[in-house]
Simulated scan of single mutants.
Amino acid sequence: MKINVGNMSFSTNDEELRDLFSAFGTVASVEVVTDSNTNRSRGFGFVVMPDESEGNAAIRSLNGSEFAGRKLRVNEIKPSE
């Protein structure tokens, strides 16, 4: 399950995002999207969790929750058809 995480603090890094989602299960990969010129976070990222039930639990718990001073927007990325 691929998860979009928006409205993150610009100081959030891959390790912090992985730690946040690891509380809900196995995290296969994490990517905080960064600006290519400044190497600073652009405020969003992606998390892949192989177990759908763990991913859904993370989405339910983390969407709207505060992390590093910001209310996260967390939702599943549906595959394009």
Results as ranks from 00 to 15, higher is better:
53 S>E: 13
62 L>C: 08
9 S>P: 06
72 L>W: 02
46 F>L: 06
45 G>L: 05
73 R>P: 05
25 G>K: 00
16 E>T: 15
47 V>N: 00
34 T>A: 08
32 V>D: 13
72 L>P: 04
7 N>W: 07
19 D>M: 05
77 I>P: 09
10 F>E: 09
69 G>H: 09
22 S>G: 04
53 S>D: 15
78 K>P: 05
55 G>Y: 02
45 G>P: 11
42 R>Y: 08
45 G>R: 06
55 G>Q: 00
39 N>C: 09
49 M>C: 03
58 A>N: 02
23 A>Y: 00
16 E>N: 15
29 S>V: 11
55 G>E: 02
1 M>E: 00
22 S>C: 03
41 S>P: 13
15 E>N: 06
13 N>P: 02
11 S>E: 07
22 S>Y: 03
44 F>A: 05
77 I>Y: 13
28 A>F: 15
5 V>R: 15
44 F>N: 04
58 A>S: 00
56 N>K: 10
23 A>S: 12
3 I>Q: 00
28 A>K: 14
38 T>L: 02
81 E>C: 09
1 M>T: 04
65 S>C: 07
78 K>D: 13
31 E>F: 12
14 D>G: 03
24 F>I: 02
60 R>L: 15
27 V>T: 11
47 V>M: 00
22 S>F: 01
56 N>T: 08
71 K>V: 13
28 A>M: 10
15 E>W: 03
57 A>K: 07
69 G>R: 12
14 D>K: 05
16 E>L: 15
12 T>S: 05
10 F>L: 06
23 A>M: 07
31 E>V: 15
59 I>C: 01
68 A>P: 04
7 N>K: 08
50 P>L: 01
31 E>M: 14
27 V>C: 08
19 D>L: 12
30 V>D: 14
21 F>L: 10
46 F>E: 01
21 F>T: 03
1 M>D: 01
7 N>C: 08
43 G>S: 07
9 S>W: 05
56 N>D: 04
30 V>A: 03
32 V>C: 10
80 S>D: 03
73 R>H: 13
37 N>Y: 11
48 V>T: 10
25 G>C: 03
72 L>Y: 00
39 N>A: 12
40 R>L: 08
53 S>G: 12
35 D>F: 14
34 T>Q: 04
81 E>Q: 10
24 F>M: 01
